[in-house]
Design a protein around this nucleic acid. Structure first.
Lengths: 144, 144
DNA sequence: AAACATGTAATCGATATAGTTACAAGATAA
DNA sequence: TTATCTTGTAACTATATCGATTACATGTTT
């Protein structure tokens, strides 16, 4: 099991749109950097657009960020690309036997724990923004 | 995307083995409570056995816990049933373009963040034991 | 020997991912 | 207007994983 790379690609795309803001970032250009097909990029861009993170126009090359780098958290991207549903990171088996002490109670016992685990994971993304990503990339560039 | 219910089933099985310890818990019996096929249960029991959490013998009905309830964390079960690989909860796209500022650096920038998110999630399970689960189930029983 | 249990392999349907091709519809420049 | 480029989508493919199911070899007990 593994969470879709759409999330990583989404971060990649947004960071590149910003760092390349003097030029138009077409889906073809972005696809070259990500190393995938332009249609894949357009699908992800559609999700980012729907979430209000970028502005794109049919027929017009390029996309631009809707907000400041510091106003876009990784959690915003995470939600936008729809890689994990709300409170459904972990799946629980269906219809355990209701006449069994464990079967009867296991779901309500486990659910809040799974929710807490998912929340702990998501909190990490809530506390990071695209600005952190871009600054880290820029810092690495200056070293070399 | 969703993490396999093997984890939830593993917790269910272990809790039930404990609460039913005066009787032998065969795979057939456990399957009835979980509401699945006995072969599915046997496969998961094999994983729990390999991880040293239970003792089972070919041909002999029933399984018993290898350790005290309080000595088995949910993280032990999580690792045993192999639902998420080490540092691979999130996947990162392969071979981003090395001549691009973002493509060159994105992987090393994102990786530690993804690892931190996964760790935060797993820490929740490290801090809970089967004893917590069993006590919660018993508490629910006493209310009704 | 008969009955019952575990261990495990093979198969199936369902679902998700990532890639690919194709094309309609919008925008722009000559 | 026409040609060209771009986005937005749909359709199809290969691949992978999950959970269920069947089947059977192997071990245990009476």
């Amino acid at each position: 099991m593994s969470i879709s790379s759409r999330f990583a690609v989404g971060i990649h795309i947004l960071a590149l749109i910003d760092l390349n803001k003097e030029t138009a970032s077409s889906s073809e250009f972005l696809a070259g950097s990500v190393n995938t097909n332009a249609a894949v990029i357009r699908k992800i861009m559609g999700m980012l657009k729907k979430a209000g993170l970028i502005e794109v126009q049919p027929g017009v090359a390029g996309a631009k960020l809707s907000r400041e780098l510091s106003e876009i958290t990784l959690f915003d991207i995470y939600k936008a690309v729809n890689v994990v549903e709300e409170n459904e990171l972990f799946s629980i088996h269906d219809k355990p036997h209701p006449d069994c002490v464990v079967g009867k109670n296991i779901q309500s016992t486990i659910e809040p724990i799974f929710m807490a685990a998912q929340s702990a994971m998501e909190k990490v993304f809530q506390n990071l923004t695209l600005e952190d990503i871009v600054k880290d990339i820029e810092a690495k560039e200056h070293i070399q």
